[in-house]
C-alpha cells in the first residue's frame, strides 16, 4: 500500500489522542470531584482505611453496573483504519493495533515522569507522599495537591482505557482484570519508582504473552497474581523499591 505512511500516522494519532484526551480530561475532572467527596467524607475524619476503600469499591461497582445498563454485557470494539494492518519489518510484523497504544502510553508515561520530577506541582505530588506535614510547612496545600494528583491518575487511567479498546474489544467488567495486573506491576517495580514500574510492566507483559502463547490465553490472568505472590514472598519492596 502506497498511501503515505505519514498521513495514516497523523490521522490515527490525532484521532486517538483527541478521543482519549477528551475522555481523560472529563474523567480527570470527575476524578477531582471524587477525591473531594473522599476528602470531605473520609480523610478529614481520619477514617480512610475501611470505609474509604469500601467507598471506592462501591464506585467501581456502580460504574460497572452503570456501563452494563447503558452498553449491555456484550463486547464492544471500535473501527479505525490502522487497526487491521501491520508494519512489516524484515523479521517480524508490528501490528499497528499494538504499536499505537504502545507509543501513546510511552509518551504519556515519560511525559508524566518529566512532569513529576521537574515541575513544582509534580514535586509537590511526590512530596505529599513522603511527608504531608512538611509540605504544609512549605506553604503548599496538601489537599489541593492530592486532588490534582488524583485527577491526574484517573485521567491517565482513562487514557489507558481509551488505548485498550484499540488493542482488544472491551466489556464493562474488563476493568477488574487490570486491578491485579496494575497492582502486581506497582509492587514488583517498587512503589513510587518510575524505572521500576517500567521494568516490571515490560516483564509482566512478556511473561503474560509467553503464557498465553504456550499455555493458552485463559491462563494469562493468573500470571499477575503469581508474580505478585513471588514478589511479596521474596522481595516485598520490589525490584527498585526504596
Amino acid at each position: 500500500m502506497d498511501v503515505s505512511l505519514d498521513l495514516l500516522m497523523n490521522a490515527m494519532i490525532s484521532g486517538l489522542l483527541l478521543g482519549g484526551f477528551y475522555a481523560a480530561v472529563s474523567i480527570g475532572l470527575l476524578g477531582m470531584a471524587v477525591y473531594q467527596v473522599y476528602y470531605v467524607a473520609f480523610e478529614r475524619r481520619d477514617d480512610q482505611s475501611l470505609r474509604g476503600l469500601s467507598f471506592f469499591f462501591g464506585l467501581l461497582f456502580i460504574a460497572e453496573v452503570g456501563l452494563i445498563l447503558v452498553f449491555g454485557v456484550d463486547y464492544r470494539s471500535v473501527n479505525a483504519r490502522y487497526i487491521g494492518p501491520s508494519l512489516q519489518l524484515v523479521l517480524f510484523d508490528l501490528p499497528w493495533r499494538l504499536l499505537v497504544p504502545f507509543l501513546v502510553s510511552m509518551a504519556m508515561a515519560i511525559g508524566l515522569q518529566i512532569f513529576l520530577s521537574r515541575s513544582f506541582l509534580g514535586r509537590a505530588i511526590q512530596a505529599v507522599a513522603q511527608d504531608q506535614l512538611a509540605l504544609q510547612l512549605m506553604a503548599a496545600n496538601p489537599t489541593r495537591i492530592k486532588r490534582i494528583a488524583f485527577g491526574l491518575s484517573i485521567a491517565t487511567a482513562a487514557l489507558a482505557g481509551a488505548c485498550l479498546i484499540i488493542i482488544q474489544p472491551v466489556e464493562p467488567s474488563i476493568g477488574r482484570e487490570y486491578i491485579g495486573r496494575v497492582f502486581a506491576i506497582c509492587v514488583l517495580g517498587g512503589l513510587g519508582s518510575f524505572p521500576g514500574m517500567m521494568i516490571a510492566a515490560m516483564t509482566l507483559g512478556i511473561v503474560e504473552s509467553l503464557t498465553s502463547t504456550f499455555f493458552g490465553p485463559s491462563w494469562a490472568p493468573a500470571v499477575a497474581f503469581g508474580v505478585l505472590l513471588v514478589t511479596l514472598a521474596v522481595r516485598p519492596s520490589g525490584i527498585l523499591g526504596r
Binding site: I179, G180, A184, A224, F225
Partner: peptide, 22 residues
C-alpha cells in the same frame, strides 16, 4: 499479604479472586 499495609491486603485479595477464577 498481611505484612503489608492494609490497603495492599485489600488489593491483593481482589487479585486473588481473579486468579482463583482463572
Amino acid at each position: 499479604t498481611l505484612r503489608l499495609r492494609g490497603v495492599f491486603f485489600s488489593i491483593a485479595t481482589l487479585a486473588l479472586a481473579v486468579v482463583v477464577q482463572t
